[in-house]
Design a protein around this nucleic acid. Sequence first.
RNA 1: GCGCCUGUAGCUCAGUUGGAUAGAGCAACUGCCUUCUAAGCAGUGGGUCAGGGGUUCGAAUCCCUUCAGGCGCGCCA
Length: 576
Amino acid sequence: MFSLKNYYKTILVDFKYTSCLNFFYESSAMKKGLIKIIEISLKKLGIDPIPPIEIYIPPEESFGDMATPVAMTLSKSIKKPPRKIAEELVNSLKDHSIFEKMDIADPGFINFTFTKDYLYSELKMLIREKSHFLLQNIGRDKRVQIEFVSANPTGPLHLGHGRGAAFGAALSNLLKAAGYKVEREYYINDAGKQVKLLGLSVFARYQQLLGIEYPSPEEGYRGSYIDDIANAIIKEVGKKYSECSFDTASDFFTDFSYKMMLDDIERDLKDFSITFDTYQSERELYKKGDVEKAIDDLKMHGFIYEKDGALWFRATDFGDDKDRVILKKDGEYTYFTSDIAYHRKKMRKGYDKLINIWGADHHGYIPRLKAAIQALGYPKDSLKVLLVQMVTLLRGGKPVQMSKRAGEFVTLREVIEEVGPDTTKFIFLTRRPDSHLEFDLEVAKVRSSENPVFYVQYANARINSIFSHAKEKGIVIEDFNGVDLSMLSLPEEHRLIKNLLLYPVIFESAVNALEPHRITFYLQELAGIFHPYYHNHRVVTDNVELSRARLALCEAIRIVLKDGLEILGLSVPERM
RNA sequence: GCGCCUGUAGCUCAGUUGGAUAGAGCAACUGCCUUCUAAGCAGUGGGUCAGGGGUUCGAAUCCCUUCAGGCGCGCCA
């Protein structure tokens, strides 16, 4: 009988692995193990240098479990036909007990099929050591800060912010699961013209609501939320500021307004299950002298000059299109200036990597910020800016009119209320962030009964239900160790096991590509194998041993589903 | 004019960073609830991967070019 212990021994003997546990838990055993085995065989065959070994899942299930094109890759450099290389490699791998078979396909693909015993042992590992199986220490405790949403507190969140929020949160969860130390931050633009304009817009509305004629600012903010703030102020201070000038009331109105807006935003995010670890205020950067220090720093390094009565930063020294003003001739700083200070502060906190998630409309801003980071003496790629493309909101195929000026737009809150938070998130997370997204309210709503998100969640709920049923029948499993997994002999069961064991492969690729949506697609696939299996075969039957084995399989599925759903920031309902 | 993103089935989107015969969901049509949940299952149809050229064993994927859509090119934020 195959035993895991023997397998470890095989590896120890063959490859002189001093720490086989690392080898197993570092990533997918199936993939990494295979890579290692091939590398060693190639070395034995006298091939040097050994190229990076590519392993992928074959296009047809019948081909095998995993495949490599390495023979083709090598063909040129060692001047041998790919088929010949493949044959030699397969030959040298023959002794390994984990392969049921190895096939060579034209022009030189090698297809590997694992033994069932190997699959069972890996499945057992998944169930027994789930934290090790799921937590792959790719990040090695590196500190990453992810800044996202950071919407100006001058209006409610819209759907575009929602996309950034869903993506940012999922990415944070993903990296955290991958062993990074992740901090999520929201940058509050509470200084500068925009919040002041908000204050003025509210001030005008305040006067109007008190029956005093006062012009709303030309380019000011409108919409019912402005009324809400103005009414809240009336409730708070009554007519205290009626008929006084904006100059004297400016601070109060501005502060009151943006703080109320910020509360709203926080509440919206909370209802979307998005949380942050830290908030950074722009005002605070000025107050604490961070902005001054940043400018001094740049001056010291000689990247600042004066022209036309303003101070300029030599962004062109680092590849930007033009130099940028950091102190205007009217004595005000630009938005960019505080942003330099902000990122300087971030860098000085000692993160290994900064990730900013921005709306794609800000892409033109990247070169100047990266220029600033380099001018401050940090490597260019210490900051990674991920762009999230725009969202077009439709209703029944027709664009919903969005006029910020007229205050007519659909807020994130309204969408969540109409469509539901999980469905909304799922729609965001089934797309690459850089693809333009069409969000049709009618489609999202109509589909909400048959939405893919429920398909995945339902699989988990179903499994819970199976376990309750098993309990009623008197089958309770305290320890899966004693379960005989070789009872799982159906092709569907082997498919499920293989799919589960591939989760770490998908996970790792999602981490490396910074693309949580790969998890979403994987979960749909897993659920798509489980549901038919459930339909065609009963888990709990009179055959107790078989029932126990199938329950173990269900347990493994539940572990992976839950892990994936949690990474995506979706709820995991126990029953539906 | 310059820069960034996108173009894949009727619709919305994936496509393992260059791999084998390009996939899923929705929509359409046909069946299945006396069973551990029908938010489920089984089946059918659907493609010039925007067009053209190139790179190589191999391209939806990389390079060039044309076309189409979106966004950006402030001493605004």
